[in-house]
Design a protein around this nucleic acid. Sequence first.
DNA 1: CCAAAAGTGTTTTAGCTACACCCATGA
DNA 2: TCATGGGTGTAGCTAAAACACTTTTGG
Lengths: 229, 229
Amino acid sequence: MQESDYLQHIAYDSVIFGFSGEKLKILILEYYTAGLFALPGGFVRKNEALNDAVWRGLKERTGLDNIYLEQFYTFGDMARYKPEVMEQIIKGNKKPDQDLSWLLERFLSIAYYALINYEEVIPTPDDLSDSCEWYEVDQLPPLILDHTQIVQKALETLRRNLDRKLVGVNLLPPRFTMKELQQVYEAILGEKIHRGTFQRKMLSLDVLKRHEKQYSGAANKAPFLCSFE
Amino acid sequence: MQESDYLQHIAYDSVIFGFSGEKLKILILEYYTAGLFALPGGFVRKNEALNDAVWRGLKERTGLDNIYLEQFYTFGDMARYKPEVMEQIIKGNKKPDQDLSWLLERFLSIAYYALINYEEVIPTPDDLSDSCEWYEVDQLPPLILDHTQIVQKALETLRRNLDRKLVGVNLLPPRFTMKELQQVYEAILGEKIHRGTFQRKMLSLDVLKRHEKQYSGAANKAPFLCSFE
DNA sequence: CCAAAAGTGTTTTAGCTACACCCATGA
DNA sequence: TCATGGGTGTAGCTAAAACACTTTTGG
């Protein structure tokens, strides 16, 4: 069997959430020649911590450090082992001297989701893929292997964890209005929330600071800008 | 590198919870010659689903099928890679012709917790360990590697998930009294619960059936036996 | 009849929802 | 002054917690 710099049989995939235009989106890689779409992922170096490997991959894909990151499940069914799919992807490799046959082995994938500030990201494809782009979560292209299932489970976990530690703020710039935060919640939960109720609940958590008002130029009261802690 | 029947670098560990004598307990393996304690765990065969591998291990350790099982985290720090510990364990191997050098590699561990009916379990050591016994969760011996941390995280996750689907019933026999169920909750949460409140909450879920009363011989009202669904 | 524990009714409390009113803003 | 949207007070509802009363059981 082929050796590589990475731990064999182990991969990670990351569901990177961003928020823009009132929509929840995730980053998807595309392989033009194979016509395939996949989640950004990677492998763990032999003397590297699992979490560090994921940080490294996120940095490469987004340009960002210090991302809100959560591990949520490890996928290990036999159904996700499809060497023919990997073969297609390897065929599109632009460096033909590279031996990527180790990719044809079976992999377990540890799945993470990340919440990032859309405005700061510079989406960057990896060595094998041709593009890295935002897709609305309810308008995803068909994804390879079990990646659709991974996104599904990421969303479920995110929804369940929404209230813990006010994670929604990680999808916004450092300063945001209460309305923007509400739109984040609505995009994640997929349902409308009552305005007054939401504002009160957020403020009662005592973790949001208020700053100057944001004058939009519109003929209405200017909302406070808020920040997290 | 040594080949084995298993996927390299991948292990699982299981925190098997039981309830007895009003205490929450877990199964711990002991290696006599090395004087070490560890969680039951195992490895994934090359053409076996991850979850199936864990089922297989649970069957071997407890004699039970159809166990309530939940995956909760994958541990992959460098700090958990301690070949010297594995070396000690391998030294105690009773089959000296067996080549276990593949155990000295680095492993990621996918951690699960299981909830089982204490009365039905026949704890059974694995090939390398000498005993498999119940320990109260707050009186565990020092465990190898990061296994103490794994137990800690299992408990946190279990507490967070307690309300979902009434998981506590998996720690009890098919027929149980409301008091026993309450003691399970108290053992897991580590705090007393108000009797009336608890009973009402459980009954309001509409998932418990009532059966005949259980006459203990004591001079008090006999409680109903309940079952789940 | 008593003590002990189960079952259940009642009161209190807290939190959430909906509605509404007032305020700030720029046309 | 008006239309628009933000901030907040208040009344009503619902769920949960605390308390207490009643019932069952064996001595």
